[in-house]
Structure formats: C-alpha cells, structure tokens
Amino acid sequence: MANWTDNIVEKVNTAADAIKNIGDINEVDVATAPREVVWEDGKVKLYHFIREEKPKAKTPVIISYALVNRWAMMDLQPDRSFIRKLISEGIDVYVIDWGYPTRTDRYKSMEDYILGDLNHCVDYVRQAHGIDQVNLLGVCQGGTFSLIYSALNPDKIKNLITLVTPVEFADNDGLLFKWSREMDVDTMVESFGGLIPGDFLNFGFDLLKPMNKMRKYYGFNDVAKNKASLMNFLRMEKWVSDSPAQAGETYRKFIKDLYQQNKLAEGTFELGDQEVDLKKITMPVLTIYAKDDHIVPPDSTRPINDLIGSKDKELLEFPGGHIGVFVGSRSQKMLTPAVAKWLVDRDQ
C-alpha cells in the first residue's frame, strides 16, 4: 500500500510538474549574455559583451567560432556559459557572428572570411582599444581560420588559443576524414547551387555516431520534471537544429586543401597568393583538445604545437567530447578559469 501510494504520488506529481513546465515554456532562449553590435559588414557582425567591472586583462579576446553551427554554443545557458564565465573571470570578450550565408554568398571565399571579415574585426578592436595586438580564440573550423590568420598577421595577435581545432588532416582514420578525402567536392558544390545546406553538414556529423540522436532522449520523461533541466535540454536542441549553410567556395577550399591535401600541416597552404607558414606563429599559444572528440579527434588537434614556431605553448586535454568543452560542468569549473588565467598571465 505504501509503495502504491508513493508510486502514484510520484507519477502524478511528475505529470503535474511536466504539464506546468511544458506549458510554461513559450520561448527557448539561448545566447542571453548582454552584448552590442560594434561592427558589421553584410551578414557578419562583431559583438562586444557588456561588462560591469574593469577587466583583469587589458587585451580583449576575439572569439572566432566555426562557420558550421552557431556561436550560441558559447553562451547556451546562463549558468553554464563559456562567455559569461570568461567575462566573470576578468576577460573583455568579443565574438564574431558569421551570420547565415545565402546563395548570394556562394563565392564567398576563405580569403573573404579570413583576410576580410576576421581582419576587419581584429583591426576594429585594435583601433577601439588603441592597442597593436589582440587575443584570438578560435573554435573548431574557426580555430583553423585563427591559425591561418595568426600565421599571416603575427604582429596583430598577442596570444592565440585554439579550441578543438583541426590542423592535421592526414594521419586520421576518423570517418569524416576518410569520407571527405574521397568526396568529389566540386560536384557537390555545384549541385547544391554553391551553398552547402546545414542539413547536409549535420547529416554527415550525425553519421559519425548514428545513435547519439536517439540516446539523448533516454529518460526524457524525467527531464521535464525539472524546469531548468527541461529548458537546458531544449536549448541544446535549439542549437543542434540551428545550422547555417556554408558558402560553397569556402567549403570547397576547406575540403580540398585541408581534408584532402592536408596543406596547412604540410606547409603548402596558400591564402590570397600568400603562403601560410605556421612556423610564423611565434606568440604564446594554448591548444585545447577534447579527449573523446569524435568530430575533431585529438590526432588532428594535438600536432598544432609541433607545427607552430612559438616557444611559449601549452597543450591542454579536456576530458569530454566536442560539445562538452563548452557546456559541461567541468568546462565551467576547470577549463574556462584556466583559459582566463592563461590570458591574464600573458597580458603584459
């Protein structure tokens, strides 16, 4: 009898809470840290995050996220936000929002992104703060962009941080690498009308762990019991489904020069008629990779520190996956404070 009572009380209470929680949700909010647009050109925007206290480090950091998916991952939920934590640890933060490319951007090239947009953002921050050098933090594909940029403009970057950033594309058995190596990328770009749909990119990532999109629903009936956990679940879902398309020209070069020919690691990569020599990166570099990353495996990330010319360089392993780097509790407790400290220590 007691069991039965407990059982029914629990079931009905769960249902009642769920009704309330599910009914209460009208909007799933992500990326809520207050910010302002300080620079924009077409679809690309530079945000400056508003802070109340003076930063501990006088050099601000610009975050360059991947073109795949959205930077909102860096500020997904208020209590586990990479950006908010970085701010509270005393860092002045800017983020580049690459926007949602459309068909008119089909010929937008890596040159346009790196020598154009990224360079403009760097120059804007240098000018706004009256400084010669800024800190750059690149994530995934945005990290690869940051490495390329820093090699071409070492005088503009004070410190460089790469997060789950692929640079070595050859010695890798990962499916994404295997498939990309053999893909007829010209045909793909042409048939998609010059714009690679976000769904297509996601489909590829999904195949790497096909059951992940099922596993996340285990125990979904317990999720809604608690409003916070329900909201966080829905925030992640919103992020997953928010995938911009990629400009065909950029995709073509990324696949051909990097995935297929591994040019950056081999020192033969060129951008806008300039050779990109990673040895020219001599500023302090912090390389962070995720141990269980199945999208950008450690094998493709760890070699960064061997390829650059910096003397002050660190390799930091994060225990988790590609996404856990940003939203896990360990990220909040360990990673972000470590990143902030690393920047503060090198602010002189």
Binding site: A15, K213, E237, S241
Partner: peptide
C-alpha cells in the same frame, strides 16, 4: 500510465525544434 506516457511524449515533442521532431518520433517508435 500508458496514457500519461503518450500525452507526455506528444507534449514534449511539440516543444522540440521542428526538424528534430522526426528523430524523437523515431526514438519513441523504437
């Protein structure tokens, strides 16, 4: 209990982004 579960799953599904609802439906079917 079954009715609760069905109701619950439907209500939950309706809060997911539209593109992901088929994934959830597949999960439920399985």
């Amino acid at each position: 209990a079954q009715q609760t579960e069905t109701w619950y799953a439907d209500a939950f599904k309706n809060k997911l982004p539209e593109q992901l609802r088929p994934h959830f439906q597949t999960y439920m079917d399985m």
